[in-house]
Design a protein around this nucleic acid. Structure first.
Lengths: 114, 114
DNA sequence: TCATGCGCTATCCTTTTTGTAAGTACTATT
DNA sequence: AATAGTACTTACAAAAAGGATAGCGCATGA
């Protein structure tokens, strides 16, 4: 068990903020979790995640900038683009699975009338 | 290792959204991480987290509604209030520690020039 | 009595986020 | 030639989030 002193919590606060800066917001983690089922095209991703092109475009750029997603343009005639998770994105696995787990568990708690 | 099929990811997507609905946003997780060093009064919390009273009030209410924080009024004359984490909030430990860990690691990566 | 601290709430305003609808460029299909 | 699908971008609008400032009721200490 970890101690929770004022100092250690100040550090924790910083770390959490850093994380939120990168994957906070409504869509980033959702997109990553969707991309875990494999690389996807732009419109495909838009449909599966239920996100409008405008936002999707922005979110993907940010994820790319942070090295979590890579964009690959195919040699096909009507350009096709594939977005996929990078190796680095795997460092987020713990965060992802913890959140999935909690979400499921919390939902159960809610359903069972608190 | 887990499989990442389209279906399992749809479920994951939902769970992540559920989690974000409860602890998403700029402050909730920060507040929780600050409260881990012990119960705190309103102004104390406001200072330590660096959050304005208006927002703090709102965030605390939401955290309370979701059973993550409890508000306790003291018997003292100028009313004193203590906010503290509930037992249920401990179910978030995994999420918190994963995010702290990631935040620290990511910051290192950035500092070491990517 | 006046300033100070506690725990807020109210008001107002700016910034950020998200969304909608439409349009662009290109190509394959009908 | 018209339609549709890929990958976006642009313009505009609405909503949500966040922040600054002030003030209120109460009580203690100077």
């Amino acid at each position: 068990m970890k101690k929770h002193t004022v100092e250690s919590c100040a550090k924790a606060k910083l770390a959490i903020r850093d994380t939120l800066d990168v994957v906070g917001g409504k869509w980033k983690l959702v997109l990553i979790s969707v991309l875990r089922s494999g690389k996807k095209g732009f419109n495909e991703l838009s449909r599966e995640a239920g996100i409008s092109p405008r936002i999707l475009s922005k979110e993907l750029q940010e994820l790319e900038m942070n090295g979590l997603v890579s964009r690959k343009v195919g040699e096909t005639k009507p350009v096709t683009v594939q977005y996929e998770l990078t190796d680095y994105s795997e460092t987020l696995n713990e965060v992802l699975t913890a959140m999935e787990k909690w979400g499921n568990q919390h939902r159960q708690k809610i359903i069972l009338g608190n």
